[in-house]
């Protein structure tokens, strides 16, 4: 497999009961780049990224066929160590979901469940993760305050910090800025730009300008199908498919 490919998806289909939510998707996600998934609501983009860290396991009545190759293995196999997988492929959700615990305990949560107890080591991880998530300067003097007192944008960066603390390879982001104001959104976007040096990032977004700003590659989903996948510039300026063109020029969506 190509060294620059982090995750390779082949012929992925997914059904919720009788409803087919993903139709024969094949896509290669490049390493250390930001890949954006765009498309109207209900097109399957969130369902798609939830497949990549097996979060759809939590939903009743799901059937999946096809392959998702990560590190040379099909992660859809029954014998996949889901706990280890989710450590390596982490997710930031649409709505910030900090735990009702202190800022410190939120960031230390992952390392703790993975067995790190040493206070000094935890302190270092918490500070490092908050710095990477560009939140340290705003919270360093109130780490013991409840995370629920932070603003929405800060909460989302905290959730990113919480994820970075478990040292993942891949960050899945499901519309991470959709609940945030423009200033908080631009902070998240700046952060993505920094983070892609170290991480492979897949971001689902409603917002085409956002995709154009942050992503090197963009995939357009429609009704469960992957319509077009190309470099972001090509997809927006020289779409090959009529449906992509209609969507990126705002004719529907």
């Amino acid at each position: 497999m190509d060294d620059n490919v982090e995750i390779s998806v082949k012929n992925l289909s997914l059904w919720f009961g009788k409803f087919q939510a993903l139709k024969n998707i094949s896509i290669a996600i490049p390493k250390n780049e930001v890949t954006a998934l765009i498309g109207p609501s209900g097109c399957g983009k969130s369902t798609f990224i939830k497949t990549l860290d097996r979060m759809n396991d939590l939903v009743d009545n799901v059937r999946i066929t096809g392959e998702v190759i990560y590190k040379g293995r099909n992660i859809l196999d029954d014998d996949t160590d889901v706990v280890q997988l989710r450590k390596e492929i982490g997710m930031v959700f649409q709505k910030p979901n900090p735990f009702p615990k202190s800022i410190y305990d939120n960031v230390a949560y992952g390392p703790r469940v993975h067995g790190i107890k040493d206070r000094k080591a935890l302190n270092d991880i918490v500070e490092g993760s908050l710095r990477k998530a560009a939140l340290w300067d705003e919270v360093s003097d109130r780490l013991n305050e409840s995370a629920l007192r932070l603003s929405g944008g800060q909460q989302q960066r905290l959730c990113i910090a919480r994820l970075l603390a478990v040292e993942p390879n891949v960050l899945l982001m499901d519309e991470p800025a959709s609940a945030l104001d423009p200033i908080a959104t631009s902070k998240i976007e700046d952060l993505l730009y920094e983070l892609k040096r170290e991480y492979t990032i897949i971001i689902v977004t409603h917002n085409m300008q956002q995709a154009a700003r942050v992503a090197t590659h963009t995939a357009f989903f429609l009704l469960g199908e992957l319509i077009e996948y190309a470099s972001t510039i090509d997809l927006f300026e020289r779409p090959r498919d009529k449906r992509t063109e209609d969507y990126v020029t705002g004719k529907f969506g």
Binding site: V83, G90, M91, P100, Y109, G110, V113, R162
Partner: peptide, 17 residues
């Protein structure tokens, strides 16, 4: 909220954790 469970599992916690 389901998001809290997802948040925890998403960090590689086991269901029990």
């Amino acid at each position: 909220p389901a998001e809290l469970r997802e948040g925890s599992l998403g960090l590689g916690a086991t269901k029990w954790q």
